[in-house]
Design a protein around this nucleic acid. Sequence first.
DNA 1: TTGCTTCTCAGGGAAAACCCTGAATTTTCA
DNA 2: TGAAAATTCAGGGTTTTCCCTGAGAAGCAA
Lengths: 212, 212
Amino acid sequence: MIHFGILDDHPLVVEGLLSLFKTNPEILAGWGTTTLADCEKKMLESPVDVLLLDIHLDQLDGIKLCRDFRMRFPALQILMLTSYAEPPLIKAAFQNGAAGYLLKNAGYREIQEAITTARSGRRYVQPQVQEILLSSSMGFGQTPRLAYIPTLTQREQEVLTLIVNEMTTQEIADKLFVTTKTVETHRTNLLQKLGARNVAGLVKIALEKGLV
Amino acid sequence: MIHFGILDDHPLVVEGLLSLFKTNPEILAGWGTTTLADCEKKMLESPVDVLLLDIHLDQLDGIKLCRDFRMRFPALQILMLTSYAEPPLIKAAFQNGAAGYLLKNAGYREIQEAITTARSGRRYVQPQVQEILLSSSMGFGQTPRLAYIPTLTQREQEVLTLIVNEMTTQEIADKLFVTTKTVETHRTNLLQKLGARNVAGLVKIALEKGLV
DNA sequence: TTGCTTCTCAGGGAAAACCCTGAATTTTCA
DNA sequence: TGAAAATTCAGGGTTTTCCCTGAGAAGCAA
């Protein structure tokens, strides 16, 4: 019997997953939560073997969270759950201790297999994800992005969010009570870290990877 | 007894919704589909009272689809399902015949209420959405967006796509075999039509509304 | 035929973004 | 406590975007 927990800010997904496995004797859903606080509480109250973790939580970096959980709960296996099949995200997930990477368009069987595989300590890679990884490493057409998701600093995070909200350097500087030069530095670093050529790239990456 | 159908490209959401209402005697889920083709077939085979429609389907404009379905199936009530609470999207949905607008973070009760309300011919507005609409019309802080999704011309569409792909005006001009001045005109028109302040806004709107 | 939309192009100017180098101060953490 | 990371700021320059006005050509529909 496998106990698993869920952290996803969409109750729909949580409830759906829970009811999906309700009748399966092999897999027992321990609980589902929609906030980090709830999830942490639950983890302590009733530990699970496998945690399904949404990569794009409100205001939270799922990847970081994954690493964090892995350190705090060594026996815990984590399956990242996401809508985006971005190679950098996938790699970052695995580099940070994820046992699997599931697209939200995964079917019942795939989810089940992922959970059982993760439980047994092996990695599960969805066939679809595998394909994406392969095609991306061939690199036909698309701009090569960084192979991992760099960790943004607090400030960079803030600046990025404001950029995505269409604010100019001047406006951001005013809002953060710093000079425009400082904001420019952050912009430059963001471009570099995210491998973007300009604002368009920043916004695109930010939205796609759920960095904002 | 209410029959409802689902069209969402995430099997997880579809299966989740289906199983959520499996035990409810008042609401009967007719079917769930993940592709437009399947959905259309199902609509003819076994018509439903209410259709839950994902607003952001792969390559498809959910809003347009909504209008389309409304014309083809006059008795059908449609509930838009989405992750984004963008006021323009909400308004566009209602203007195109949607009976309700549900965020994917909606709870079981809200979904149930939305379905029954829609069935009875009334509109359902999630409290959370209502709040967003109000706060947006008050216009505190946020840039007011257009109340509808403007139709982009062929050329504008092309330019927008290239902008999202981080290309500069010069590069776009070269690619389309026109002068930079022409591309600038398209850019200006795009900003105007989409109600954006700069590239960041363009990219954001383009991605959120699935324009690219 | 007239009006509408789309697509094209231009001049000229202001604002914003991007690039490079260099550096001081504070925070964080091993 | 000491090194690394983060944050701050600057000069000075190039490129890109944004804004305004104006306009010709092509296609289409009433």
